[in-house]
Amino acid sequence: MKNVDYDIVIIGGGPAGLTAGLYAARAKLNGVLIEKLAPGGQVLVTDWVENYPGFPEGISGIDLVGKMADQAKQFGLVIENGEVMSLDLSGPVKQIRLNDRTITAHAIIIASGASPRKLGVPGEDRFYGKGVSSCATCDGPFYRDRAVAAVGGGDTAVQESLFLTRFAKKVYLIHRRDELRATGILRERALANDKLEILWDSVLTRIDGLTNVEKITVKNVKSGETKTIDVDGCFMWIGIRPNAEFLGDEVKRDEFGFVITDSKMETSVPGVYAAGDVRDTPLRQIATAVGDAAIAAFSAEHHISSKQ
């Protein structure tokens, strides 16, 4: 039989990938985790995590994923920097094409996560990094005593808008409905915060400025009325899209591109599993990502041992 490089290859180093790596390492599988940027994933841009059990005071995103990476490495997980370009899943041995080499494995766990979705309004691309952002912890302090806008109404939008109020003198939260989707405690905090003004039933239609963001145009979807607001920054938290460009048609996905799995986290291709935000799931949290990943690693271990 021809040599296979690894028992298992884990794609992505956020909470799902790191947890899958921890379980794979403890199962003594020969594995590697491939991360494109830096271990941590979207949690790196989360200033404070207070819904992950075990940290009653809360914990910063970077500290939490740092601990997850340390824990997995302590049991021997190898993390390598690389970008997955495509997969060849036609045979029992899977091929993973990276930017600089191709590796082979008996099983794959796709934990490539998701990225902030774009709204697609004029000015959004032009002013990216010049006022348009999706990372409050990176860019919030640039807006001390300035006015900023934020778009969205879910947990991320509300939590990060609240973080922005620590710096900005005013945060306009633009939300297309008449109530927030965010969880109760965040809704309460948002409504109680003097610096946060929620523009209900409203959508952002354009972003303007000379070299940096200077103003935005907002339309009320009920009255049809539009108005411009002077802001120096505009933060986008309108949801996410899966990081799955490298996946071909073999792995079945839902209408939004998220990977479909069964309860064992197995995809439509035997030996290929998915965990975390990239998966078609009703809730995307650190807590759900690590749960997915534990199941995926356990299922992958069974798949690998059945081949030997």
Binding site: L37, A38, G40, V45, S60, I62, N81, C138
Partner: peptide, 14 residues
Amino acid sequence: WAPWCGPCKAIGPM
């Protein structure tokens, strides 16, 4: 970079 920026710390090793 700045000390408060998670991604800044994360790209340090790279």
